[in-house]
Computed example of a mutant assay.
Amino acid sequence: MANTETLFQDAVELLKQLITTQSFSREEVQTADIIDAFLKARGIPTNRKMNNIWAYNQHFDAAKPTILLNSHHDTVKPNTGYTRNPFEPTVEDGKLYGLGSNDAGGSLISLISTFLYFYNKPNLKYNLCLATTAEEEISGINGLESIIPELGKLDFGIVGEPTLMQLAIAEKGLMVLDCTTYGKSGHAAREEGDNAIYKAMSDIEWFRTYKFPKESEIFGPIKMSVTIINAGSQHNVVPATCTFTVDVRVTDAYRNEEVLELIKQHVSCEVKARSIRLKPSSIDKNHPIVQSGLKLGRTTYGSPTTSDQSLLDIPSLKIGPGDSARSHSSDEFIYVDEIREGIELYIKLLEEIV
């Protein structure tokens, strides 16, 4: 559709427009409008559900496998450390400043540019489905998850997040557990009651020390951390209940459901998972898209941060321009050259296989 230099120039202008437009999670109507208009101006039919926009390559063939190209256009709120206007895109010393420039604006516009590059090419081995989605920063239900049933059969995905264009071939899942231990209240001065705090202590110690039988080749063991505890109402009453919260970072060695079941078998407290939808994800090192990246001199690693990968039930690779360390930071920025490199590498990554 266009040469890479034109794609790059248009991408930077699009990112500046997105930075100018507030798009906190659940408030992405205007950035969805901008992306929709950007694609339609280039003759691309789009689909929309709430603040999610998606499109397919011109020569889509249902008989062929489909690659998902996904990134998000929502942002967190700027923190109090900003010294610049977070909604004013400025370029200084090769850096494009602005909220969402790094997470995940650079990846988003680079994937859009890559989609444009392949859009009208005939005889591709794969279809391409571009999905620009909302609510990633809050793992919301009205983002990618809400449109997956409508995207059709997907064979694997590229999820755009800042990884310095290295290959994140696995990502930890997340479960937050609310645990309750039940005892019996009584007067603290007498031998009355059954102290729920004491009962909770053995379970908390189990969470601190337990090692799951299987370990991830990439991440090692699952990590469980007790992060909140509440019990008691006054000094002279033995507490009847003790509640505590456990943060569980699940690796690709297990499914969330398996980990939850194992935990319930080992502890005496009541365990309720707030959600099991943020799944660990991985893609085989021998997968063609990973092999393509390795040929380009990229390296593989496991990502400790969660993204929309956690909502996908297909193999997926997380890769994008920018640096995860800059995400959610004050005076967020991305190097303009990182965007250029991102577009070029995404294209080369796919050219090897499509």
Rank of each mutant, 00 (worst) to 15 (best):
G143S: 02
N123A: 09
G293N: 14
L260I: 12
S310T: 07
D61K: 06
E92T: 00
M175C: 14
K95E: 03
K77W: 03
V248P: 04
G157Y: 02
L111W: 08
L151D: 04
I147E: 02
M1G: 11
T133K: 03
N3V: 04
T80Q: 05
L311T: 07
S316Y: 00
R48Y: 10
I138F: 02
E352Q: 02
I109K: 04
S71M: 04
P89L: 04
K199L: 14
Y198D: 14
K279A: 13
E161F: 03
R249A: 01
K125Y: 00
L345Y: 09
D61G: 12
P162C: 06
E257C: 04
G106S: 11
G157N: 04
V248S: 06
N79V: 05
A32G: 06
C242L: 12
A196Y: 08
P86E: 08
F8W: 10
T83I: 05
Q9E: 13
I263A: 11
S275M: 02
L262K: 14
I347T: 03
C129Y: 01
L262M: 14
I141M: 10
N57R: 05
S327A: 15
D103M: 10
T243C: 12
E258F: 04
L130C: 03
G220A: 07
K125T: 04
S146A: 14
I147H: 03
E205W: 04
Q30S: 11
S110Q: 04
N127F: 03
